[in-house]
Design a binder for these strands. Structure first.
Length: 102
DNA sequence: ATGTTGACGCATG
DNA sequence: CCATGCGCCAACA
């Protein structure tokens, strides 16, 4: 089975209102955190598969948004999606991992 | 086969 | 807080 499919299946398990870090997912699958980023980035270019992947629920270890580094992704799109799911950001654009971590 | 590319993470200065 | 540096590895050309 392709690695990215495994990654997507794990990401799909993150419940609404919760988040996971790249490192956390990497640990579960015994992969390098970089690969998680690669797999999620792949979603923008590759035609979406039959089931959606809640990619917005994956943040970095500091509890901030990492998609700002990536072109093709509207600024703060991820932040808005998470806010719509009830997740709060502080003034520094950071979320409370203690509270929201999956 | 070989080189390159990252939505990372952690350590260090 | 900011800046490097490096490990790490699936995919892709």
């Amino acid at each position: 089975m392709k690695t990215y499919k495994k990654i997507y299946s794990v990401v799909r398990k993150i419940p609404k209102g919760k988040v996971a870090t790249y490192g956390q997912i990497a640990q579960m699958l015994d992969l390098n955190p970089r690969v998680i980023g690669w797999a999620l980035n792949r979603l923008v270019s590759v035609k979406n598969n039959r089931h959606p992947v809640p990619w917005q629920r994956v943040v970095n270890s500091k509890g901030t948004i990492s998609t700002n580094r990536a072109p093709n992704i509207p600024l703060d799109l991820q932040k808005h999606l998470l806010e719509n799911e009830g997740i709060k950001f502080n003034d520094h654009g950071k979320i409370d991992l203690k509270k929201y971590l999956f």
